[in-house]
Design a protein around this nucleic acid. Structure first.
Lengths: 230, 230
DNA sequence: TCAAAAGTGTTGTTTATACACCCATGT
DNA sequence: ACATGGGTGTATAAACAACACTTTTGA
């Protein structure tokens, strides 16, 4: 959803160019891999905070909407489109190097690790970091990540956004692991299965996955791959 | 809460001044009065949409944060401070008169009608409108109002934000009317009282209010006048 | 036949809903 | 004494939490 609007000009408005804050978009990209919730960070190539890790982002292109800018950034960094992407919050810039001020419109996205192909750039070095082991971050990007994580945890409880973290077909255990990883706690297997099925967010397929020296696991799919509030 | 952050400059960043979108703040100010949920609108004094009704807002002053700008607007229009005020969403400008684009950071506020003193300005004419009988609005401000109303309804269910709509002391019936007005439906009196008290969001005082030819009503206060997630 | 993960039901507790009468007051 | 809004409890249904054993497979 991207409603659009703008402001009435105020009588106290300044001359157009003076002190107009810069606008940037940030995209917090989450994935679940190897039992960890991971976030994509890039290494800054320029001052300020040169060589520090930071949330990917940048300025809007001419005539680009915020949503479009966020989508573009996401594709540039990971190669994926059509994933869950929502506006998170708009932060005041702490970038003291921008004397006119800076405003960062943050988004967050959920991607299936297996589908991502990170941009290979020597100046940029995008890489996944576990949320539990973050490096030191430029600006106050840590605050942004914590805010995004909190929002993700809430959304997981009352929406089907997990669809964006998993492939077309998956086992119930795999889905449960994704929930457990993000929420940071163990869940009861029977209650979890009951809930997922009774809420109708996933459906069994006729296929199963033979994986090891044990009973094969039924494969499931999401009933909808559009965001749904339960 | 106002976490702050900014962006890493991108290698694809444009020259600093070109196509930089304008930033404005919008403040959706709600109150409950006369059995209606009302919103404060102003009449635009300038083009575009001159003489149309619109959500109050404007540009930031030099070195002003978004939260500060929203607070300032709120005080300018209503004279009240220390009320519930939160960032709502950032909208893409549809203001085609701004060729470089425009971004509107929308906030919403809840005020006690009895405490407000509207600015008396001939060029500005702030006035309360029931959400159920809005005039035609400038830009697509209607979308913003609907988004704000939806958020308010959600918040009412799982927070104590109603404190910002009522005076220090109030009757249980008054509180219930506020909920009913905003949610747009009748609530059961006994269940409502049980819930408010068991969640601990309000507390009885020793006082009561003698009002008419019937039993006096006990007065209550909010346990906290800070926002609390229940 | 053993190890490993998949799969499956019941019970108790908490939370939400529905619903009707008595109470204190002013006129 | 009556009209007005204030105030109270109980029974049912629904949602959630706790908990242990059997099944299917490969080695």
């Amino acid at each position: 959803m991207t409603p659009k609007a703008t402001h009435p000009s105020s009588p106290s408005a300044q001359p157009a160019a003076a002190h107009q804050p810069l606008v940037a978009v940030l995209v917090v990209i989450f994935t679940v891999a190897e039992g960890n919730l991971k976030v994509l960070l890039i290494r800054r190539a320029i001052e300020p905070f040169r060589d520090w890790w930071a949330i990917p982002g940048g300025r809007l292109e001419p005539a680009e909407t915020l949503d479009d800018g966020a989508s573009r950034k996401l594709v540039e960094e990971t190669g994926v489109a059509d994933v869950y992407l929502e506006q998170l919050y708009t932060f005041d810039g702490l970038d003291r190097t921008a004397p006119q001020g800076a405003v960062a419109v943050a988004y967050f996205a959920l991607v299936d690790y297996a589908r991502t192909r990170l941009a290979q750039r020597t100046d940029w070095q995008p890489a996944w970091f576990p949320m539990s082991a973050l490096p030191e971050l430029a600006f106050d990007n840590r605050t942004v990540l914590e805010y995004a994580l909190q929002r993700l945890r809430y959304k997981l409880e009352y929406t089907n956004v997990a669809y964006s973290l998993l492939p077309e077909r998956f086992t119930m255990t795999r889905l449960q692991q994704v929930y457990e990883t993000i929420l940071g706690k163990k869940l009861d297997k029977r209650n979890f299965r009951k809930r997922m099925l009774s809420l109708g967010i996933i459906e069994p397929t006729t296929e199963s996955l033979v994986e090891g020296a044990h009973r094969p696991a039924r494969l499931y799919t999401f009933s909808s791959r559009q965001p749904i509030i339960l």
